[in-house]
């Protein structure tokens, strides 16, 4: 066989094998994406609460999780937590015993820190005049937050948030270091069998690029919908 044909057959053979990990990659993305968003909203509310007892811990949390590599966070949770007997005997062990649980937990804690900063940027970007107008109309602080701040902040935060979903997707590839078989994990197996890094890893690259493109398009459409009152 000519080298080109050989490469093509390798690519055609490896893509279905890599795609066996697609489900796991998606599960990690969606689970930690949603849980991370909930965590981010909690952190945001703590930060803008005005109470130092709430905002200081949130700031420390965000600082620590944004200042350390996600790989280290994954290893602390996967390898590290088992060091303590209290954790091994607690009810959480059912989740933390599994690499999947550790992966979701690490990704959630990490993305939560980044997303809460993005949401805060959105909240701070809301025009003061609108809130003053709300106050003049007699809306309470809570009503102003729900009906004025939230919709505008969401629209302002979408572009940055979509970037963060893409980095979350990229981070999911790191769970292959804790024995999980996501697409990256399968690609590493195929590579170990074939020693063909170009064919295997480039195929995987194309798959990830397609996912990035889909995420960008989806958020682009969402942003268009959220700002439909502005266009004309």
């Amino acid at each position: 066989m000519t080298p080109v044909l050989e490469s093509l057959t390798l690519i055609i053979e490896s893509v279905p094998q890599i795609l066996m990990g697609f489900g796991l990659t998606l599960q990690l993305l969606f689970l930690s994406g949603i849980l991370g968003l909930i965590l981010a909203i909690l952190l945001l509310l703590m930060r803008i609460s005005g109470s130092a007892y709430l905002s200081a811990p949130a700031m420390v949390y965000i600082y620590v999780f944004r200042g350390t590599p996600i790989l280290v966070q994954i290893f602390i949770i996967y390898h590290g937590l088992a060091q303590f007997e209290a954790i091994r005997e607690s009810i959480f062990w059912a989740i933390l015993r599994e690499p999947f649980g550790c992966g979701v937990l690490a990704l959630t804690l990490n993305t939560g820190a980044y997303v809460s900063e993005i949401l805060r940027g959105g909240v701070l970007g809301v025009e003061r005049g609108l809130l003053e107008a709300g106050a003049a109309l007699g809306l309470s602080k809570r009503h102003r937050f729900i009906h004025i701040t939230t919709p505008i902040a969401v629209r302002l935060a979408i572009p940055a948030y979509s970037n963060d979903v893409i980095s979350l997707m990229k981070s999911t590839a790191l769970v292959s270091t804790i024995t999980l078989l996501d697409m990256m994990g399968y690609a590493r197996i195929v590579y170990a069998e074939t020693y063909a890094p170009y064919e295997v890893f480039t195929s995987l690259m194309v798959i990830y690029l397609l996912m990035t493109w889909i995420i960008q398009r989806a958020f682009g459409l969402f942003e268009r919908r959220m700002s439909r009152h502005i266009r004309q």
């Binding site: 893409i166 997707m169 590839a173 790191l174 990256m184 890094p197 890893f201 690259m205 990035t212």
Partner: peptide, 22 residues
């Protein structure tokens, strides 16, 4: 920019390291 911003860092690293070795 499209390729390197849209693929996981670890993938680029492995492709680069094993690819350059070959």
């Amino acid at each position: 920019t499209i390729v390197f911003r849209g693929t996981p860092e670890i993938l680029v690293l492995l492709l680069f390291y094993f690819g350059s070795a070959i």
